[in-house]
Design a binder for these strands. Structure first.
Length: 550
RNA sequence: GCGCCAGUAGCUCAGUAGGAUAGAGCAGCAGCCUUCUAAGCUGCGGGUCAGGGGUUCGAAUCCCUUCUGGCGUGCCA
């Protein structure tokens, strides 16, 4: 917000001086506060094109820039940086604007209504959601919320792999457990079957309703019954886990349904028409290597069944057909070898594969007492998303996942996460919010809180910490646009921590309710009131609660 | 072997898409509660940005290369 104003001003001055500006320059907040509140490299960037020395160019610019009342000081520094020191009145004006916008603050039409499909989690419906799914859920959901706020038209979708080998194995595992309950000797439970306790629970539940009837069916009917039962139960379980995590989807797309609708044949015929399939060793292959993949891929196996790839591709095709401009898939780390073939298929079918964007979430390593916990779904040894939410709470879990950038491995120390103390930064941020609420409560109690704040109170806000708070608040609109554009929700966490730090410092240093004058109190209350609103917006984007007290 | 991702303080991680003296939290040390919540604040110590080349006014950031780790490389999903 402030940055844009300064940027626009610089551009105006450059044009006024009739200088060339062919290359982009930046306006930034310097790391070092001695370099001003904002700084630009424009003199260095434009020096070449204008055949002038950076410093003399900067001098000329500064002479013009200084005419604005927005700056207390504009100076030349280093090899040609122009540093701006903003005047309090500038901050105050910015603050008034933020305050006037209220809850709508940091909304924009930046995304221009671009239709974006976010596919995430899409876990196999063969067991409870695990930690990686939790990470994907937090990440995808927050990205969705931010994109929506800045003018994209995003939708969230969950692809259900309810067809294929793993479902057969699931049904067989359930059958074994069911027989076990009914007193059959099943011997050793097969290695490849699903070992988790949840299969036993499912078996008990099914036994209560269907009992022995299951075994009076034909083999085929029985498998269907077992599959349907297990899938609907497990899907419901996953959906509940996600809801506990405040993650909802606009669509749940079933692979089984897609297959039934004939999209598989559709995709096969498209690829055949594009003349990029062939038969070899009784299987049908896709010549994906012609389109950038490192080798060709099987579409139909020699036994006549299709590979996972085909319905998944069909699913992506429906996304395009439904009119989305951009498709974002949020995948786990084990999928990256799979992506080139989807891109290849896009190209083969004549679609622009640039519209498909893949975000890889790296794996989550669980540690317990400094030791890596190995997880295996088959063996039933996993820590579930529900376990996590129960133990550390939704807020901490979401925060933990959002706070790290996507393509970084995430080391999750269970013991540390269990400690609900100051080692967890989410409390630091929530505490800042709670403190503001506490001050406001006190102000109301002491009858300092006004019916409405007079606008010219802003003139009382002159302390460095107060201006720093305003500056951070003013950063939010641009930040959200960057997050949406680069798909980097983790920056919300950094922002929130920085803002919280200033609040804590401010709190420790100044009296609010009983400041030197009533007017000063009111001005500070007004500042905190707006800060509370902005923090509330950020917490909401992260799907984390903004507590009134802690 | 090949491909993708990563390597920043003791630990967990940021680093505003090339900017000035690389930051935060935790852990460690020393202080601060008769005043709106001490889950806080103030100060101190801590770095070969994995190594080496290159590109330029300027590199943690871009390019090349080596090393280390993770994942992938099925007619599994």
């Amino acid at each position: 917000m402030i940055k844009e104003i300064i940027h626009a001003h610089i551009t105006e001055v450059i044009d006024k001086l009739k200088l060339k500006r062919e290359r982009e320059y930046s306006v930034e907040i310097p790391n070092n506060t001695e370099h001003g509140d904002f700084s630009t490299n424009c003199a260095m960037i434009l020096a070449k094109d204008n055949k002038k020395a950076p410093k003399s160019l900067a001098e000329a610019l500064i002479k013009e820039l200084k005419k604005s009342k927005n700056y207390k000081k504009v100076e030349l520094a280093g090899p040609g940086f122009i540093n701006f020191y903003l005047s309090p009145s500038f901050y105050q004006r910015v603050f008034s604007e933020i305050r006037a916008t209220g809850a709508e603050y940091a909304t924009s039409d930046f995304g221009k209504g671009e239709r974006v499909l976010l596919e995430f989690v899409s876990a196999n419906p063969t067991g409870p959601l695990n930690i990686v799914s939790a990470r994907a859920a937090a990440f995808g959901d927050t990205l969705y919320r931010v994109m929506r706020r800045v003018g994209f038209d995003p939708a969230r979708e969950f692809y259900i792999n309810d067809a294929g080998n793993q479902v057969d194995i699931l049904a067989e595992s359930l059958e074994l457990r069911l027989r076990e309950i009914q007193g059959d000797r099943i011997g050793e439970f097969p290695y490849e079957a699903y070992h988790g306790e949840y299969v036993k629970h499912l078996a008990h539940k099914l036994n209560a309703t269907d009992g022995i009837r299951v075994f009076m069916m034909t083999e085929k009917d029985r498998m269907e019954r077992l599959k349907d039962f297990a899938l609907s139960e497990l899907l419901e379980m996953q959906r509940n886990s996600l809801e506990r995590f405040d993650v909802y989807f606009d669509g749940w797309v079933s692979e089984k349904t897609l297959r039934a609708e004939g999209v598989v044949e559709e995709v096969l015929s498209y690829l055949t028409e594009a003349d990029c399939t062939y038969e070899k060793e009784e299987a049908i292959w896709f010549a994906s290597s012609k389109y950038g993949d490192d080798k060709d891929r099987v579409l139909m196996k020699s036994d006549g069944s299709i590979t996972y790839f085909v319905p998944d591709l069909a699913y992506h095709l429906t996304k395009i057909q439904r009119g989305f401009d951009t498709l974002i898939d949020i995948f786990g780390p084990d999928h990256h070898g799979y992506v080139p073939r989807i891109r290849a298929a896009f190209r083969a079918m004549g679609y622009d594969d640039e519209m498909l964007e893949i975000i890889y979430l790296q794996q989550v390593n669980l540690f317990e007492s400094g030791e890596r916990v190995k997880m295996s779904k088959r063996a039933g040894k996993i820590v579930t998303m529900d376990d996590l939410v129960s133990e550390v709470g939704k807020d901490a879990a979401r925060y933990f996942f959002i706070a790290r950038k996507a393509n970084a491995h995430l080391n999750f120390d269970l013991e540390l996460a269990l400690k609900q103390n100051n080692e967890n930064p989410v409390y630091y941020c929530q505490y800042a919010h709670a403190r503001i609420c506490s001050i406001i409560k006190k102000a109301r109690k002491d009858k300092v809180w006004p019916r409405s704040f007079k606008k010219d109170l802003v003139k009382k806000l002159t302390k460095p910490e107060e201006l720093a708070i305003i500056q951070r608040l003013a950063d939010l609109p641009e930040l959200l646009e960057l997050i949406a554009e680069y798909r980097e929700p983790h920056r919300l966490a950094t922002y929130l921590e920085e803002l919280s730090a200033i609040i804590h410092r401010y709190y420790a240093r100044y009296q609010i309710v009983s400041a030197k004058s009533k007017e000063l109190s009111l001005a500070r209350l007004m500042l905190l009131d707006t800060t509370k609103t902005v923090m509330g917006i950020v917490f909401d984007l992260m799907g984390i609660s903004a507590p009134e007290k802690m």
